[in-house]
Design a binder for these strands. Structure first.
Length: 324
DNA sequence: ATCCAGTTTG
DNA sequence: CAAACAGGAT
Protein backbone atom coordinates (compact mmCIF):
# COMPACT_ATOMS: atom_id res chain seq x y z
CA UNK A 1 0.00 0.00 0.00
CA UNK A 2 2.84 2.35 0.73
CA UNK A 3 5.05 0.94 -1.97
CA UNK A 4 5.78 3.69 -4.44
CA UNK A 5 6.14 1.43 -7.44
CA UNK A 6 2.82 -0.23 -6.77
CA UNK A 7 1.11 3.13 -6.61
CA UNK A 8 2.76 4.37 -9.75
CA UNK A 9 1.55 1.22 -11.43
CA UNK A 10 -1.91 1.94 -10.11
CA UNK A 11 -1.76 5.48 -11.44
CA UNK A 12 -0.86 4.15 -14.85
CA UNK A 13 -3.87 1.89 -14.65
CA UNK A 14 -1.87 -1.34 -14.50
CA UNK A 15 -3.26 -2.44 -11.19
CA UNK A 16 -6.66 -2.83 -9.69
CA UNK A 17 -8.71 0.18 -8.77
CA UNK A 18 -7.00 2.66 -6.55
CA UNK A 19 -8.48 3.06 -3.13
CA UNK A 20 -9.54 6.66 -3.46
CA UNK A 21 -9.96 8.42 -0.17
CA UNK A 22 -13.46 8.31 1.12
CA UNK A 23 -13.26 11.86 2.42
CA UNK A 24 -13.29 13.38 -1.04
CA UNK A 25 -16.36 15.37 -0.01
CA UNK A 26 -14.52 16.97 2.88
CA UNK A 27 -11.62 17.83 0.62
CA UNK A 28 -14.02 19.44 -1.82
CA UNK A 29 -15.58 21.53 0.93
CA UNK A 30 -12.20 22.59 2.31
CA UNK A 31 -10.91 23.55 -1.12
CA UNK A 32 -14.05 25.52 -1.96
CA UNK A 33 -13.65 27.54 1.23
CA UNK A 34 -9.95 27.99 0.57
CA UNK A 35 -10.72 29.19 -2.96
CA UNK A 36 -13.24 31.67 -1.60
CA UNK A 37 -10.65 33.10 0.80
CA UNK A 38 -7.46 32.88 -1.27
CA UNK A 39 -8.23 33.07 -4.98
CA UNK A 40 -6.02 35.59 -6.71
CA UNK A 41 -8.03 38.51 -8.02
CA UNK A 42 -7.19 38.10 -11.68
CA UNK A 43 -9.13 40.32 -14.08
CA UNK A 44 -10.56 37.47 -16.14
CA UNK A 45 -12.07 35.73 -13.12
CA UNK A 46 -15.45 35.96 -11.40
CA UNK A 47 -17.45 36.73 -14.49
CA UNK A 48 -15.71 40.02 -15.21
CA UNK A 49 -14.91 39.27 -18.83
CA UNK A 50 -16.38 37.60 -21.89
CA UNK A 51 -15.78 34.01 -22.97
CA UNK A 52 -13.36 35.44 -25.53
CA UNK A 53 -11.50 37.19 -22.70
CA UNK A 54 -11.22 33.89 -20.86
CA UNK A 55 -9.84 32.20 -23.97
CA UNK A 56 -7.24 34.94 -24.40
CA UNK A 57 -6.16 34.55 -20.78
CA UNK A 58 -5.79 30.80 -21.20
CA UNK A 59 -3.71 31.04 -24.35
CA UNK A 60 -1.45 33.65 -22.77
CA UNK A 61 -1.08 31.42 -19.72
CA UNK A 62 0.14 28.39 -21.66
CA UNK A 63 3.66 27.93 -20.27
CA UNK A 64 3.69 31.46 -18.90
CA UNK A 65 3.17 32.43 -15.25
CA UNK A 66 -0.17 34.12 -14.55
CA UNK A 67 1.37 37.06 -12.78
CA UNK A 68 3.26 38.03 -15.90
CA UNK A 69 0.17 37.65 -18.06
CA UNK A 70 -2.02 40.23 -16.31
CA UNK A 71 -0.60 43.46 -17.81
CA UNK A 72 -0.45 41.94 -21.29
CA UNK A 73 -4.02 40.65 -21.04
CA UNK A 74 -5.36 43.99 -19.84
CA UNK A 75 -3.71 45.98 -22.63
CA UNK A 76 -4.65 43.35 -25.21
CA UNK A 77 -8.34 43.28 -24.31
CA UNK A 78 -8.53 47.04 -24.30
CA UNK A 79 -7.01 47.19 -27.76
CA UNK A 80 -8.85 44.18 -29.22
CA UNK A 81 -11.97 43.60 -27.11
CA UNK A 82 -13.33 40.72 -29.17
CA UNK A 83 -12.39 38.16 -31.78
CA UNK A 84 -13.54 40.34 -34.67
CA UNK A 85 -11.26 43.17 -33.57
CA UNK A 86 -8.24 40.90 -33.30
CA UNK A 87 -9.01 39.30 -36.65
CA UNK A 88 -8.69 42.71 -38.32
CA UNK A 89 -5.36 43.65 -36.76
CA UNK A 90 -2.09 43.63 -38.74
CA UNK A 91 0.07 40.65 -37.84
CA UNK A 92 2.98 42.93 -37.04
CA UNK A 93 0.89 44.63 -34.36
CA UNK A 94 -0.15 41.29 -32.93
CA UNK A 95 3.43 40.03 -32.73
CA UNK A 96 4.66 43.26 -31.23
CA UNK A 97 1.87 43.41 -28.65
CA UNK A 98 2.69 39.84 -27.62
CA UNK A 99 5.97 41.34 -26.46
CA UNK A 100 8.00 39.13 -24.20
CA UNK A 101 5.30 36.70 -23.22
CA UNK A 102 7.23 34.00 -25.03
CA UNK A 103 6.25 31.39 -27.63
CA UNK A 104 5.18 34.03 -30.18
CA UNK A 105 3.55 31.38 -32.34
CA UNK A 106 0.78 31.48 -29.75
CA UNK A 107 0.04 35.04 -30.83
CA UNK A 108 -0.43 34.01 -34.46
CA UNK A 109 -2.57 31.05 -33.50
CA UNK A 110 -4.71 33.28 -31.34
CA UNK A 111 -5.30 35.55 -34.29
CA UNK A 112 -6.12 32.61 -36.56
CA UNK A 113 -8.50 31.52 -33.87
CA UNK A 114 -10.05 34.99 -33.91
CA UNK A 115 -10.57 34.73 -37.69
CA UNK A 116 -12.47 31.47 -37.36
CA UNK A 117 -14.62 32.74 -34.50
CA UNK A 118 -15.34 36.05 -36.20
CA UNK A 119 -16.20 34.65 -39.60
CA UNK A 120 -17.43 31.11 -38.97
CA UNK A 121 -19.10 31.62 -35.60
CA UNK A 122 -20.44 35.16 -35.87
CA UNK A 123 -17.97 36.40 -33.24
CA UNK A 124 -19.29 34.03 -30.56
CA UNK A 125 -17.20 31.23 -29.06
CA UNK A 126 -18.52 27.73 -29.77
CA UNK A 127 -19.76 25.83 -26.71
CA UNK A 128 -18.70 22.29 -27.53
CA UNK A 129 -15.44 20.54 -26.76
CA UNK A 130 -14.96 19.30 -30.31
CA UNK A 131 -15.51 22.70 -31.88
CA UNK A 132 -13.17 24.39 -29.43
CA UNK A 133 -10.52 21.70 -29.90
CA UNK A 134 -10.62 22.27 -33.65
CA UNK A 135 -9.58 25.92 -33.24
CA UNK A 136 -5.93 26.84 -33.90
CA UNK A 137 -3.80 26.82 -30.77
CA UNK A 138 -6.53 25.21 -28.67
CA UNK A 139 -5.72 21.80 -27.27
CA UNK A 140 -7.36 19.59 -24.68
CA UNK A 141 -6.48 21.78 -21.73
CA UNK A 142 -7.63 25.07 -23.20
CA UNK A 143 -10.84 23.62 -24.64
CA UNK A 144 -11.76 22.16 -21.25
CA UNK A 145 -10.76 25.30 -19.38
CA UNK A 146 -12.92 27.52 -21.58
CA UNK A 147 -15.90 25.20 -21.20
CA UNK A 148 -15.52 25.18 -17.43
CA UNK A 149 -14.41 28.74 -16.67
CA UNK A 150 -16.26 30.66 -19.36
CA UNK A 151 -19.40 28.59 -19.82
CA UNK A 152 -19.75 26.79 -16.49
CA UNK A 153 -19.96 23.38 -18.13
CA UNK A 154 -19.18 20.38 -15.98
CA UNK A 155 -15.96 19.01 -17.46
CA UNK A 156 -12.75 17.70 -15.92
CA UNK A 157 -9.88 20.08 -16.59
CA UNK A 158 -6.46 18.41 -16.67
CA UNK A 159 -3.32 20.50 -16.54
CA UNK A 160 0.04 20.06 -14.89
CA UNK A 161 -1.16 21.57 -11.60
CA UNK A 162 -4.27 19.44 -11.37
CA UNK A 163 -2.31 16.31 -12.20
CA UNK A 164 0.19 17.06 -9.47
CA UNK A 165 -2.38 17.93 -6.79
CA UNK A 166 -4.75 15.03 -7.46
CA UNK A 167 -1.92 12.53 -7.69
CA UNK A 168 -0.43 13.73 -4.43
CA UNK A 169 -3.62 14.15 -2.43
CA UNK A 170 -5.51 11.06 -3.59
CA UNK A 171 -2.85 8.59 -4.72
CA UNK A 172 0.04 9.71 -2.55
CA UNK A 173 2.71 9.87 -5.23
CA UNK A 174 4.19 12.36 -7.64
CA UNK A 175 2.68 12.68 -11.09
CA UNK A 176 5.28 11.46 -13.55
CA UNK A 177 5.76 11.39 -17.26
CA UNK A 178 5.17 13.83 -20.08
CA UNK A 179 1.51 13.89 -20.92
CA UNK A 180 -1.51 12.98 -18.85
CA UNK A 181 -2.17 9.24 -18.64
CA UNK A 182 -5.64 7.75 -19.12
CA UNK A 183 -5.61 6.88 -15.43
CA UNK A 184 -4.93 10.50 -14.49
CA UNK A 185 -7.80 11.65 -16.68
CA UNK A 186 -10.05 9.03 -15.16
CA UNK A 187 -9.12 10.18 -11.68
CA UNK A 188 -9.91 13.79 -12.55
CA UNK A 189 -13.27 12.76 -14.00
CA UNK A 190 -14.13 10.64 -11.03
CA UNK A 191 -13.41 13.38 -8.53
CA UNK A 192 -15.26 16.12 -10.41
CA UNK A 193 -18.19 17.24 -8.22
CA UNK A 194 -21.76 17.16 -9.45
CA UNK A 195 -23.49 20.41 -10.28
CA UNK A 196 -27.00 19.05 -9.78
CA UNK A 197 -29.22 21.35 -7.79
CA UNK A 198 -26.62 24.04 -7.90
CA UNK A 199 -28.55 27.17 -8.74
CA UNK A 200 -25.83 29.70 -8.88
CA UNK A 201 -23.76 31.77 -11.23
CA UNK A 202 -21.74 29.82 -13.76
CA UNK A 203 -18.45 30.46 -12.05
CA UNK A 204 -19.79 29.43 -8.63
CA UNK A 205 -20.84 25.94 -9.70
CA UNK A 206 -19.18 23.14 -7.73
CA UNK A 207 -17.36 21.63 -10.71
CA UNK A 208 -16.02 25.04 -11.77
CA UNK A 209 -14.90 25.94 -8.26
CA UNK A 210 -13.27 22.53 -7.96
CA UNK A 211 -11.30 22.90 -11.19
CA UNK A 212 -10.15 26.39 -10.32
CA UNK A 213 -9.40 25.60 -6.68
CA UNK A 214 -7.32 22.52 -7.43
CA UNK A 215 -5.42 24.40 -10.10
CA UNK A 216 -4.87 27.42 -7.86
CA UNK A 217 -3.70 25.21 -5.02
CA UNK A 218 -1.16 23.64 -7.35
CA UNK A 219 0.03 27.05 -8.52
CA UNK A 220 0.42 28.70 -5.12
CA UNK A 221 0.67 26.01 -2.39
CA UNK A 222 1.15 22.50 -3.75
CA UNK A 223 4.03 23.54 -5.97
CA UNK A 224 6.39 21.16 -7.71
CA UNK A 225 9.61 21.58 -5.75
CA UNK A 226 8.74 22.94 -2.35
CA UNK A 227 5.07 22.65 -1.48
CA UNK A 228 3.88 24.73 1.47
CA UNK A 229 2.20 21.87 3.29
CA UNK A 230 1.96 23.98 6.47
CA UNK A 231 -0.37 26.34 4.63
CA UNK A 232 -2.36 23.67 2.81
CA UNK A 233 -6.08 23.43 3.56
CA UNK A 234 -6.13 19.68 2.94
CA UNK A 235 -2.84 18.74 4.58
CA UNK A 236 -4.73 16.59 7.09
CA UNK A 237 -6.20 14.49 4.30
CA UNK A 238 -3.28 14.36 1.89
CA UNK A 239 -2.02 10.89 1.02
CA UNK A 240 1.30 12.30 -0.19
CA UNK A 241 2.03 14.05 3.10
CA UNK A 242 0.92 10.97 5.02
CA UNK A 243 3.39 8.89 3.00
CA UNK A 244 6.25 11.20 3.90
CA UNK A 245 6.18 12.95 0.51
CA UNK A 246 8.02 10.18 -1.39
CA UNK A 247 10.11 11.42 -4.29
CA UNK A 248 9.28 15.07 -3.68
CA UNK A 249 10.35 17.21 -6.59
CA UNK A 250 11.40 14.14 -8.53
CA UNK A 251 11.92 15.10 -12.14
CA UNK A 252 8.82 14.47 -14.18
CA UNK A 253 10.25 15.27 -17.56
CA UNK A 254 13.49 14.70 -19.30
CA UNK A 255 16.11 17.42 -18.85
CA UNK A 256 15.41 20.14 -21.29
CA UNK A 257 17.66 21.31 -24.00
CA UNK A 258 19.80 24.20 -22.86
CA UNK A 259 18.77 27.58 -24.16
CA UNK A 260 22.22 28.98 -24.78
CA UNK A 261 23.18 28.56 -28.40
CA UNK A 262 19.93 26.97 -29.53
CA UNK A 263 17.62 27.92 -32.33
CA UNK A 264 15.26 29.30 -29.73
CA UNK A 265 17.77 31.88 -28.66
CA UNK A 266 18.49 32.89 -32.25
CA UNK A 267 14.79 33.12 -33.13
CA UNK A 268 14.27 35.26 -30.06
CA UNK A 269 17.10 37.58 -31.08
CA UNK A 270 15.64 38.11 -34.54
CA UNK A 271 12.13 38.81 -33.28
CA UNK A 272 13.41 41.06 -30.56
CA UNK A 273 15.39 43.11 -33.09
CA UNK A 274 12.27 43.51 -35.22
CA UNK A 275 10.16 44.55 -32.26
CA UNK A 276 12.79 47.07 -31.24
CA UNK A 277 12.96 48.83 -34.60
CA UNK A 278 12.59 52.64 -34.34
CA UNK A 279 9.17 54.10 -35.11
CA UNK A 280 8.51 54.21 -38.81
CA UNK A 281 11.09 51.56 -39.67
CA UNK A 282 9.77 48.12 -40.51
CA UNK A 283 12.67 46.38 -42.21
CA UNK A 284 15.80 44.85 -40.73
CA UNK A 285 18.36 44.80 -43.52
CA UNK A 286 20.70 41.91 -44.22
CA UNK A 287 23.68 43.57 -42.56
CA UNK A 288 21.75 44.08 -39.34
CA UNK A 289 20.49 40.52 -39.49
CA UNK A 290 24.00 39.16 -39.82
CA UNK A 291 25.14 41.14 -36.82
CA UNK A 292 22.70 39.27 -34.61
CA UNK A 293 24.47 35.89 -34.68
CA UNK A 294 27.90 34.74 -35.79
CA UNK A 295 26.89 31.33 -37.14
CA UNK A 296 25.18 32.34 -40.36
CA UNK A 297 24.19 28.80 -41.18
CA UNK A 298 22.20 28.54 -38.00
CA UNK A 299 20.98 32.10 -38.41
CA UNK A 300 19.56 31.42 -41.86
CA UNK A 301 17.99 28.23 -40.67
CA UNK A 302 16.21 30.16 -37.95
CA UNK A 303 15.16 32.92 -40.33
CA UNK A 304 13.68 30.27 -42.58
CA UNK A 305 11.82 28.65 -39.72
CA UNK A 306 10.44 31.99 -38.55
CA UNK A 307 9.27 32.60 -42.11
CA UNK A 308 7.61 29.19 -42.25
CA UNK A 309 5.87 29.93 -38.99
CA UNK A 310 4.56 33.17 -40.45
CA UNK A 311 6.34 35.22 -37.82
CA UNK A 312 8.51 37.12 -40.31
CA UNK A 313 8.80 37.76 -44.05
CA UNK A 314 12.04 37.48 -45.99
CA UNK A 315 12.70 40.24 -48.49
CA UNK A 316 14.58 39.86 -51.80
CA UNK A 317 17.80 41.44 -50.48
CA UNK A 318 17.91 39.14 -47.46
CA UNK A 319 16.33 41.65 -45.09
CA UNK A 320 13.42 40.67 -42.90
CA UNK A 321 10.29 42.32 -41.52
CA UNK A 322 7.24 41.46 -39.50
CA UNK A 323 4.31 40.38 -41.68
CA UNK A 324 1.56 42.93 -42.28
C1' DA B 1 9.47 12.47 -28.53
C1' DT B 2 10.85 17.36 -29.73
C1' DC B 3 10.55 21.90 -30.46
C1' DC B 4 9.20 26.47 -29.12
C1' DA B 5 11.16 31.24 -25.65
C1' DG B 6 11.11 34.24 -21.84
C1' DT B 7 11.10 34.84 -16.97
C1' DT B 8 11.14 33.47 -12.12
C1' DT B 9 12.69 30.61 -8.54
C1' DG B 10 15.54 27.51 -5.49
C1' DC C 1 22.63 27.42 -13.11
C1' DA C 2 18.66 24.18 -13.81
C1' DA C 3 13.87 23.48 -13.16
C1' DA C 4 9.56 25.01 -13.64
C1' DC C 5 5.82 27.36 -15.68
C1' DA C 6 -2.96 27.33 -16.43
C1' DG C 7 0.51 23.57 -23.44
C1' DG C 8 0.10 22.80 -28.39
C1' DA C 9 1.63 21.17 -32.83
C1' DT C 10 4.48 18.24 -35.49
Amino acid sequence: MNDTNTMHAALRGNATTIAIETDADEIETALAQWWHDNARDLPWRFGRTTPWGVLVSEVMSQQTQMGRVVPYWTAWMERWPDAAALAEAPKSDVITAWGRLGYPRRALRLQECAHVIAYDYADELPHTYDELLALPGIGDYTASAVLSFAFGERIAVVDTNIRRVLSRAFVGVESLGGSASPAERALAKRLLPDDDSAKCRRFDRPSVVWNQAVMELGATVCTAKSPLCEACPIAGKCAFLRNGRPGLGQRRTRPRQLFQGTDRQVRGLVLNALRGLPDGETVLDRKSVERLWKDHVQLDKCIASLDEDGLIEILPGGGVRLPV
